[in-house]
Structure formats: structure tokens, C-alpha cells
Design a protein around this nucleic acid. Structure first.
Length: 1127
RNA sequence: GGGGGAGUAGCUCAGCGGUAAGAGCAGGCGUCUUAUACACGCCACGUCGGAGGUUCGAAUCCUCCCUCCCCUACCA
């Protein structure tokens, strides 16, 4: 017997019960065991940064991951089920700094790097535990670590990293030092999620970098790079993605007095006043025109095309010259007196004397902004640097790591660059060099992590070369060219991957073609220790390929690393001997770009090194998925690059990307905007199935707008299904019906053959849905799968159940009732299996009641059942589906007609005529009966095309005839519309002086004007609107019955309460009397009497065709003298 | 600055050469129902961003312009 079901479920409470059920029954572990050894489906999880609680946007992607894993599990496929956490990098550092109240790298160093790194590890463990719990709440099935164990490790690490501890692994307990245990998380002996800070991960990256070095692709670059003064680190091109933002800067115009032209000055414009300290030249466009103007007492040179934007006030043009004339002019620099400038300029002049500021030519100079004369500071800007290098200019680098002016810059020394604009301007004013200051808003790069505006700094960083870009199409490249350029090798790998949506392919190629070399170094603390040993004695450098190699080559400090993971500061103590000169060499202090950590995952987590056979089995991954924005240059890129270097093959075969989640108002979620929803809040208020249903229906390549309102829509849809389920259980309990022993699987078609067409129809539809959903999920098209399910739920509720409701409550035909129950039971149990990957909780709840509680021989979880498509396939009957669809459409047309004629469906009509072209089907008569019931007519009469109720209409098929007929089209269409055509014996049609072949027109039935008819694509429905007295009386009786039912509800009666009923019918009494017993039966009235309602009874008025009537009722109690009307 | 995408009903979006422009939501009006408030039906004359052009025919193709979004970029 089924457990009773409420029509208003508490979905959230139910989800918690099911989580408990899964835990107690070890359902997931049994699923894994059940599929072990099956065909493999390899999913590779893109690591989530374990740095904060999970957000609802993470839930979107994790829902996809779960859906596809569950789907493939239902197909019996073996999987790895390994989640990943991204652990190392600036993300974590910034938060730890914030917790400690730090503002600079000096704070960290004073605190101690060892302690700082330990806090970073602890933070990762904290949020790995938290995200694990949240993911479990989402219903995301993975091989999760016990969150309490992760927190225990975190606490042990805080107390004493060297202490011994023991963890339970899949093959038994593992004992090690706490720090090393943390470094072994995710490895086979411990199981669970992978962590990118693991020893194996870092070690394999060392191997990758050593391989790059072996091929000569790793190098140290000396360049001006974007630099974050707060974080004290360079920002690579890969990281610039979300870094651009509008910013207001001072737009400063200054005078550079010309040494050889007294009284004259160059006008130069800049938005970075601080770089004026390091000015060495002023660039002009050799081909541009320049003018000398007088303004008051000043005489200035500037670009002719910039006069309007650059000058304020009236001016007089004195002279005009090409830019090439200006080249070589000497000028007085704005900060010539600074010691740093004097030092840098000494001995750099042409004749061995000091360098002097001068005008140079540069192709890049334009006239859109500024003065047409560009201030050049090679130490402060990348393009300035390139120019300075080409011309052999001196370089001035004024800032230290923290963005503070170094010694030698006079009054600016020790000052933060961010506070330098005002003193610079004051200095210029004081020296008569100031011309104009006006704020300018422009796009400017910011640190993607902390939002600080970047500066450009001259630094040494480490790069992986991407190889040359050839100026020819890819298909014309030679083998040698490709072999010499990593970027083209990666492109070849990209070609072999299925990108969903398809534009991802183009985007990745575009990125690869345009990207610069990969900057992999970061001057920070928490991260991969770059294994680069740069010999200061001889200038050569070496890359160590693994911890083992480091141990073998160590000449000092190895003892300090022992017992520790290869992180700073312990790894820094180890020195190796230079292979070139033999001097002891230290590791460079830099850590690695964090995308190295995630990129090596196809190797580290698949045990590339320690278990090659295993790696062979699971590589490449069949599937990866992440949110698109940013990942083309981050995770997707780093995986591709590393796999190309190590194997020159794709690390995954299909990649599925999805867009961005916003708040309901279309803006990014932001706490202060009031549109942010935390994951926990969403899970506990709307429930995760509702959340998952929203995500499942979203188009992955469109942004999703997430909010409570959208959740209500999703919930409503799920409640329709729930209502069907609740209806089924309610009536099955009332009838004492229980499923047969064979009801655990799809019914045998031979058993179904004798059931009414709607029974066979809904089962056929289910079979079609299972096949379609299978196809869509197998092709990573979840929204199409969800849409298919949505439509089925609608049909199940509003057509199947609505039409068959009475069959479940009637006892006069037990065989038919059993057929109805069996059909609906099969439809529901089949449906929940199809939906299980998308909505694991709701489907489990229904499965538990309809299958498990009913004692059927079936798995005790819907997630342990197999995908049902093959089982259901024999039930498919597409011809029946087609003819039923026509019947549904006919009902809609009939309803429209009734509505237009003002005839409520309650009012029976005598007849309905219907033309159903080409709808021969064995079940047609039965379906006509369904139509009759649904639209409440006594008789349905089929008519043919020849009937006088319809006329023929033709529809020329324009795509076929358009080109041929050209200008004759309007006449042809007009003739077709007016009916001025002739159908010939051979099926061709003559009209407007033209003959159209049979396949160039469609002939349709169309209503003859002036009748109550509706039509759609050849289907014609006509209703008889004439009402007889008998029909009217029957309609009135239905009206009366409706009034009684409403009154029952308004009075608050229970569904099975019996009543005393009194009706006051007025003039209609005699006509309606014959129907009163039927009304009494339908409304559970013990007796019905006519007359004036007694005072005090609930009473309601109702309008009948002959006038007003009243009904009154009260609850009847057995034994009060009333006899059951029909016991 | 370069590349791409989008501008269609109050909102979110389909349609992407074929003849009187659609769907969901919101709203209005109805209807159905002992699945009891769950649902269903009907209601949208919208300059299909603007202006030209190609065509028998344009929301759909072309040109220019306007607005927004994304990607990308070392412009001072």
C-alpha cells in the first residue's frame, strides 16, 4: 500500500529526508559498485576555488556535472566521480591577508611566510569542507571527503604540522605527518576530492616545466609589465580578462621648454603624471603636421590636428612644419634635477656625455587625443619600453614592488604612486611647466583580484614561449612551421575537440592566434614553487623536473624541506649546483601562475606517472564543462597547452560551456544591490530541485537571470507533476489498488493492447520522451531534455488525467479501473526514471512510494535503476500519437467556438461535426468519444471534404513557385484567396491564367463563411449551437451541481462529508426535477429536498436559464434520521 | 582602436527571404474541476532600433546611422 501524499508538499524537508535515506542506505556507494567494470565514461571536473562558500552560480555548473554523471550511471557506465578543489594562488592569499588586516607584502614577510602559507592551507581546507557540504545538499553525487575529517586536518595543521595523524583510505588507514597527509589528499590511497596543492599536482607541473625548458621554450623576460602595487605582482595577459574598468584619471598637459628655441615649448599630454619623473623623450609622428602657436606670452609646438582639443582660449598660428623637422630638438625635462635622472642620463649621450631629452619619431603617434606629441618613459610603459630599446634610450624605473617611489626621486621618494598626482602637478606649476589639467574617463586595466589600478613596471618575469605567428592561413603551414610553434600545435589539438556551443571553437583558436607568451611567474608566497634555478654566477638557468630530482641534486638545505610539502619557505632553502659553472644556485622566489595548477589535472588526477595503465583508461576525458567567460584563456587554455606539450593530444574530447548567472534584475548579483541570493538560502527556501529545474530549462549559452520569481515558476511546473502523483496515490488508496508484481518495469505491450486508446497513447508518449531525453542528454543538450519532460508533464496532467479522472473513482468497471491505475502507475514510475538525473530528490520521493513502498522487486533507489528508454520502446505507437494530437486540437477548436458563442462547457450541445483529413486510424471512433465528453456534446459526426459545411481552399507553396513565377505572384495569391481557381482532374490547379502542378499547392478544407466553425490546417470543427429544452435543463442541472460543490468548499467541508441539500428552484423546478437524484449523488447528499432554505444554513445563489435559484446545505451526520441517498 | 553579437508585445526571448508577426511571464477577461485553487482558454492592430536599397515578396539579405552587450587591444 502506498503512503498517503499531501497535495502541498514541503519540498525542502523532503530533500533532507532523502539525503538521510541515501546516507543510511549507502545508495551512492552501491551505485558505484553496481557499475564497476562497466564501460567507462570519463568526466574531468574543473576545480572550484576552495576559498569561499559556494554560490548559486556554482550550483548551475555543478548541476550540469551531476546530471550527466547520473545519466551515464543509469546507462551502467563506470565513472571516477572525483571532484576537484583549486587551492593555490592569489585568491586565497588576498583573503588571508584581509583576515589578518595586512596591506602589503611586507606585512606577510614580517608575519613569516611559513605561518602565512599554513594559514592559506587552512583556509582551503575550511572551504573545501564547506563546499563539500553544500554540494551534497545540492544532490551532487561525488566521491566526497568527510567534511569533518577535512576540518580535523585543518585544526591539526594549525596545532602542529609535523604531528603524526591517520586517515582512513579506501584500502585502509594511512599514517603520515599532518602536512604530508594534506599533500596526499585525493591520491589513490586516500581517495576523495583532488586538491591542486597536492604533492603530485605540483610535482607533475615541475615535470611539465622541465620539458618546456628541454625544448627551449622557457625564458626569462625583461619588460615592462602590468603590475598590481597592492598585490606586488605582475599581471599576465591571461589575467587581464575582467580587469578593464572605467576610471577617471588626470588628463595633464605640460610644457617641455626647447633648449635651442628660447621661449618656445613642446606641449605634451599624459594621463599618468607619475611617469613624467621618468621621461626621456618626446615622440612625434614624422608624417604629421605640427604648428607653432602663440597664446599670451607662451609659444607652443603641438600637432596641427589637435589644436581644438588641446588648447584652451584663443591662439595665433605662427608657423607650420612636418614632424620630421622636429626630430632631434632638445628640451628641458620636467624632473632633470632628480638624482635618479642624472644618474641614468650620465654617459648615455651621443658623444659620451650625459644624455639630453630630445624629440624622436614614432609611427604610433596619433592625433585623436592629446597634443600629437607623446611623452616617452621607457621604464613605465610597454610600448615606451619597446621604443626606448629600439633607440637605445636610457631607462628609468621609479617604483618598487609595492608601487612606492624609490630613492633618487627627491621629494617623491617613499611616496605611494597612487598619491603622487597632486605633488607632481604642484611641482610642475612651481617650475612653470604646467599648462592644463582636466579629468579624463577611460578604460584602464585593474587587478582582477583586488581591483587596484595597475601600473607598468620594468621587471623580470618567466614565460613559456608560444612560438611564432606566421602570416599565412593555417592550412598553408608546413610541418616544420607547426613543429616549431606551440600555438599551432595547440590549435591542431583544438581541432579534434567537440565544442559546445560551437562558437567556443572559434574563440579558442582566436585566443591562441593572438596570445602572447604565457607569463607563469608571480612574485608571491602561496602557490606552486617554480622549480627554476637562475645562476647569478654564470647567468644560465636550469629547471628541476620533480622533487626526487631536486633531492638528488641538492647541495644544501634538503634537510629543511624534509617532512614538508614543496611550498615556500621550506623549498626555498634547497640549493643545487649549477650545471654550467658549479656554483650553488637558489630557486627563484617566484610562485607559479595558478592555471598551471588546474591545467595539469588531466595528468595528476589520472595518475599519469604512477599508474600509466590507469591513465590510459581514463585519458582523454569524455567530457569537461565550465562557465565560458574567461576559461578560454585560463583553464581550457592551460589544459590544452600542457597536454600538447606532454602528449600532443587532446586532454578531453567534448567541452560544454555555459554563460553567466545574474540576479533577477539582469545585473550581477551584488549584496548591496539586494539581488544576491546565497546558495544556502536558496537551497533551504526554494529547494534544490526547484533550483535545478530552473537551471535545466535555461539555455546554456544565454545568461541566466536567477531569482525568487523565476523559482516560483519552476516550482509551479513541478507541482503539476506532484498533483498527478498525489491524485494517483489518493485514489489508489481509496480503491485499495496495488501494482502487480511485474509493475517494476515497463508494461508488456500485449498487456496494454486492450486498454483504451488514451492509456496506450500516454505510454507511447512516455516511450517517445524517454528516447528523446536520452538522445538530448547523450548530446549534452539539457534544456531540450527538460523541455521534452515539461511538455509531457503537461500532457499527463491536462489531457490524460483530466480525461480519465472518473475511471479512478468508479467501481462499476473494475477492469477498466485497474487499467487506468496500471497505466498511470507505469507513466509515473517511468517518468521519474527519465527525470532522475535532473531532479534527484523529487523523483526519488515518488519512486520510494510507488515502487519501494509498494514492495515491487526493484532497486531501492530510482538512481539505481537503469535508463528506461529501451524497456519502453515497444510501447511506442506514433500513428496513435498523431491522431490523438489531432483530437486534442479539435477539442481546442471546439472550446474556442463555445467561448465565442457564449456556451459554457457545462451546457450540453446536441452535436459537433468534424472534418479530419487523412486521419484513418483504428482508434478514431474511441477518440471521437473522448472529444464528445471533453466538449460536452451528445454526438460527434465525421464529415468529409465534400461536405457542404466546408469549402476547399488552396495554398500555393511559395518557396516552390516563387522563383518561377516572379511578378505573377500577387495575382496568383489574390486568386487563391478569393477562391478563383479550378482544380483539374490530374490534381493540378488553374488560377490567374497559370497552372500549378499538384505538388506546388496544398488543398485544404476551409469553413464556409457564416457558420459556427473553426479550422486549423484542414481540420474543421462545427458545433450545433441550437439548444433544446432538454439540453437546457441538463445544463441547468450541471450548473446547480457546480453551485453545490462551490458551496461545499466555501463551507469548509471535507471531501467525503455527506450533506443535507435543499434547493429552491423557482420556475425551473419541473424541468430540473428529473436530474436532482444525479446531482445528489455527485455532491454526496443523503437527500435533496425542494423548498425554501431554512435560516442559518449556508446558502448560495445560482443563475439558471429560467431565472435565479438557491441552494443550501449542511453537513449530515449518520443516525440523524437521514438515509443515504445511494448507499 | 579592432572583431563579434544583439536591438521584435510591459518583461524575457523565438522566428532569420514566402504573404495578413509568435511563445513564456506579468496584466485583463473567461472557463474547468470534489486533482479544491492546481490548471486551461481567450485577449497583443507591436513604425519587428532609424534611414535608404535589392526583390514579385524583407523582421529575415545589402549599405549607412543610433543604442546596448561580449570578446580583444601597449595608445600617451
Amino acid at each position: 500500500m502506498f503512503a498517503p501524499v499531501t497535495s502541498k508538499p514541503d519540498l525542502v524537508a523532503q530533500e533532507h529526508e532523502i539525503l538521510t535515506l541515501w546516507r543510511e542506505r549507502r545508495t551512492f556507494a552501491r551505485l558505484r559498485a553496481q557499475n564497476a567494470g562497466g564501460p567507462r565514461w570519463s568526466f574531468l571536473d574543473g576545480p572550484i576555488t576552495a576559498n569561499n562558500p559556494m554560490g548559486v552560480h556554482h550550483a548551475w555548473g555543478r548541476m550540469y556535472k551531476d546530471v550527466f554523471q547520473r545519466f551515464h550511471a543509469m546507462r551502467g557506465e563506470d565513472q571516477r566521480w572525483q571532484n576537484g578543489f583549486d587551492c593555490q594562488g592569489l585568491w586565497v592569499e588576498v583573503n588571508v591577508e584581509r583576515d589578518l588586516g595586512f596591506t602589503s607584502k611586507r606585512d606577510i614577510e614580517e608575519h613569516g611566510i611559513a605561518e602565512f602559507v599554513r594559514l592559506c592551507k587552512q583556509r582551503v581546507l575550511t572551504f573545501a569542507a564547506r563546499q563539500t557540504e553544500q554540494s551534497i545538499r545540492l544532490g551532487y553525487w561525488m566521491d566526497w571527503n568527510d567534511p569533518d575529517e577535512l576540518r580535523r586536518l585543518r585544526d591539526l595543521l594549525g596545532a602542529d604540522p609535523a604531528a603524526r595523524a591517520t586517515l582512513d583510505g579506501p584500502h585502509g588507514p594511512v599514517t603520515d605527518g599532518v602536512e604530508m597527509l594534506v599533500g596526499r589528499l585525493g591520491m589513490p590511497e586516500l581517495g576523495g576530492s583532488y586538491f591542486t596543492f597536492s604533492n603530485e599536482n605540483n610535482d607533475l607541473i615541475w615535470g611539465f616545466l622541465a620539458e618546456c625548458h628541454r625544448r627551449g621554450w622557457l625564458y626569462k623576460g625583461h619588460d615592462t609589465m602590468p603590475w598590481c602595487a597592492r598585490c606586488g605582482t605582475g599581471i599576465s595577459q591571461h589575467e587581464m580578462t575582467e580587469g578593464y574598468a572605467d576610471r577617471t584619471d588626470p588628463g595633464l598637459t605640460v610644457r617641455f621648454p626647447l633648449l635651442d628655441r628660447p621661449g618656445e615649448a613642446l606641449l605634451v599630454w599624459t594621463t599618468t603624471p607619475w611617469t613624467l619623473t621618468s621621461n626621456v623623450a618626446a615622440a612625434v609622428g614624422a608624417g604629421l603636421g605640427y604648428v607653432k602657436v602663440r597664446q599670451g606670452e607662451g609659444v607652443f609646438w603641438l600637432g596641427k590636428g589637435t589644436l581644438k582639443q588641446a588648447l584652451i582660449g584663443p591662439f595665433e598660428i605662427l608657423e607650420e612644419r612636418p614632424g620630421s623637422d622636429l626630430v632631434g630638438w632638445r628640451y628641458r625635462g620636467p624632473f632633470d634635477e632628480l638624482p635618479a635622472v642624472r644618474t641614468a642620463f650620465a654617459d648615455r649621450g651621443a658623444g659620451g656625455g650625459p644624455y639630453e631629452h630630445r624629440v624622436v619619431a614614432w609611427d604610433e603617434v596619433g592625433e585623436d587625443e592629446g597634443t600629437g606629441i607623446v611623452h616617452i618613459a621607457p621604464g613605465c610603459g610597454a610600448e615606451d619600453f619597446a621604443l626606448g630599446k629600439a633607440l637605445g634610450l636610457p631607462m628609468l624605473a621609479p617604483l618598487d614592488e609595492g608601487g612606492v617611489f624609490i630613492e633618487g626621486f627627491g621629494f617623491l621618494a617613499g611616496r605611494d604612486v597612487r598619491d603622487s598626482a597632486e605633488p607632481v602637478v604642484e611641482h610642475l606649476k612651481h617650475h612653470g611647466l604646467f599648462y592644463r589639467l582636466e579629468p579624463i574617463v577611460h578604460r584602464y586595466p585593474h587587478c582582477w583580484r583586488c581591483g587596484t589600478p595597475l601600473v607598468f613596471r620594468l621587471v623580470d618575469e618567466w614565460f613559456v614561449s608560444m612560438g611564432p605567428v606566421y602570416d599565412v592561413p593555417r592550412d598553408q603551414l608546413s610541418r616544420e612551421q607547426v613543429d616549431a610553434s606551440l600555438r599551432y600545435q595547440i590549435m591542431e589539438v583544438v581541432d579534434g575537440i567537440r565544442w559546445l556551443p560551437s562558437f567556443g571553437y572559434e574563440r579558442e583558436l582566436d585566443w591562441l592566434l593572438n596570445m602572447h607568451d604565457w607569463m607563469i611567474s608571480k612574485k608571491r608566497y602561496w602557490g606552486l614553487a617554480l622549480p627554476i634555478y637562475d645562476c647569478t654566477a654564470c647567468g644560465s638557468f636550469d629547471v628541476v623536473g620533480g622533487r626526487e630530482e631536486l633531492g638528488a641534486r641538492a647541495v644544501e638545505g634538503w634537510d629543511q624541506l624534509e617532512g614538508h610539502t614543496a611550498h615556500r619557505p621550506y623549498v626555498d632553502a634547497v640549493k643545487i649546483a649549477c650545471r654550467t659553472c658549479g656554483a650553488p644556485v637558489s630557486r627563484i622566489p617566484d610562485v607559479g601562475n595558478p592555471w598551471l595548477d588546474a591545467g595539469i589535472v588531466p595528468f595528476s588526477t589520472l595518475h599519469y606517472r604512477e599508474d600509466p595503465a590507469y591513465w590510459q583508461q581514463w585519458f582523454p576525458a569524455d567530457f569537461v564543462t565550465e562557465s565560458f567567460p574567461g576559461q578560454f584563456r585560463n583553464w581550457f587554455y592551460s589544459m590544452l597547452a600542457m597536454s600538447t606539450v606532454l602528449r600532443r593530444e587532446a586532454p578531453f574530447t567534448t567541452i560544454f560551456g555555459y554563460a553567466t548567472l545574474f540576479g533577477e534584475d539582469g545585473r550581477p548579483m551584488h549584496k548591496s544591490w539586494g539581488n544576491a541570493i546565497e546558495f544556502d538560502e536558496a537551497a533551504e527556501r526554494m529547494g534544490v530541485d526547484v533550483m535545478r529545474w530552473m537551471y535545466a530549462n535555461a539555455r546554456p549559452d544565454d545568461n541566466i537571470l536567477f531569482g525568487w520569481h523565476a523559482a516560483d515558476e519552476a516550482r509551479r511546473e513541478l507541482l503539476v507533476l506532484w498533483n498527478v502523483y498525489a491524485f494517483f496515490v489518493t485514489y489508489a488508496r481509496l480503491a485499495g489498488w496495488s501494482p502487480g508484481a511485474d509493475a517494476a518495469t515497463a508494461p508488456d505491450p500485449t498487456k496494454v493492447a486492450g486498454r483504451p486508446p488514451l492509456d496506450r497513447w500516454i505510454l507511447s508518449r512516455l516511450a517517445g520522451v524517454a528516447a528523446r531525453v536520452e538522445d538530448r542528454l547523450a548530446n549534452y543538450d539539457p534544456d531540450a531534455a527538460a523541455g521534452t519532460i515539461s511538455r509531457f508533464i503537461d500532457e499527463l496532467s491536462t489531457w490524460y488525467l483530466r480525461r480519465n479522472r472518473k475511471r479512478f473513482s468508479r467501481s462499476d468497471d473494475p477492469t477498466d479501473r485497474d487499467a487506468a491505475f496500471a497505466t498511470l502507475h507505469a507513466a509515473l514510475t517511468g517518468l521519474v526514471r527519465v527525470m532522475a538525473p535532473l531532479l534527484p530528490f523529487l523523483t526519488e520521493a515518488i519512486h520510494q512510494n510507488l515502487v519501494v513502498a509498494a514492495g515491487l522487486q526493484a532497486p531501492d533507489s530510482v538512481h539505481l535503476t537503469r535508463w528506461p528508454a529501451a524497456e519502453l520502446a515497444p510501447l511506442r505507437d506514433e500513428a496513435l500519437e498523431a491522431v490523438t494530437a489531432r483530437a486534442q486540437r479539435a477539442v481546442e477548436l471546439a472550446r474556442t467556438l463555445r467561448s465565442q458563442a457564449g456556451l459554457k462547457t457545462r451546457q450540453p450541445l446536441a452535436r459537433l461535426w468534424i472534418a479530419l483529413p487523412g486521419a484513418a486510424h483504428a482508434d478514431l471512433d474511441a477518440l471521437l468519444g473522448v472529444i464528445a465528453e471533453e466538449v460536452n456534446v451528445k454526438e460527434v459526426i465525421r464529415i468529409g471534404d465534400e461536405s457542404e459545411l466546408v469549402e476547399r481552399r488552396i495554398k500555393p507553396l511559395l518557396p516552390k513557385i516563387g522563383r518561377k513565377l516572379g511578378a505573377a505572384i500577387p495575382a496568383v495569391m489574390a486568386a487563391a484567396r478569393n477562391g478563383a481557381f479550378e482544380v483539374r482532374a490530374d490534381g493540378s490547379v488553374a488560377l490567374a491564367g497559370i497552372v500549378l502542378a499538384p505538388d506546388e499547392v496544398e488543398i485544404l478544407a476551409s469553413p464556409r463563411p457564416g457558420t459556427a466553425v473553426a479550422h486549423d490546417d484542414g481540420l474543421v470543427v462545427v458545433i450545433d449551437t441550437e439548444l433544446t429544452d432538454a439540453l437546457r435543463a441538463e445544463g441547468d442541472a450541471r450548473e446547480l451541481q457546480r453551485a453545490v460543490q462551490d458551496l461545499r468548499r466555501d463551507t469548509g467541508l471535507e471531501l467525503d462529508d455527506r450533506i443535507d441539500l435543499i434547493v429552491d428552484l423557482g420556475v425551473d423546478a419541473a424541468r430540473i426535477a428529473p436530474y436532482l437524484q444525479a446531482v445528489a449523488a455527485e455532491t454526496l447528499a443523503y437527500r435533496v429536498t425542494t423548498g425554501a432554505p431554512p435560516a442559518g444554513w449556508p446558502i448560495a445563489g445560482v443563475k439558471l436559464s429560467g431565472g435565479e435559484a438557491r441552494v443550501a446545505l449542511r453537513r449530515a451526520v449518520p443516525g440523524d434520521g437521514a438515509e443515504p441517498a445511494n448507499a
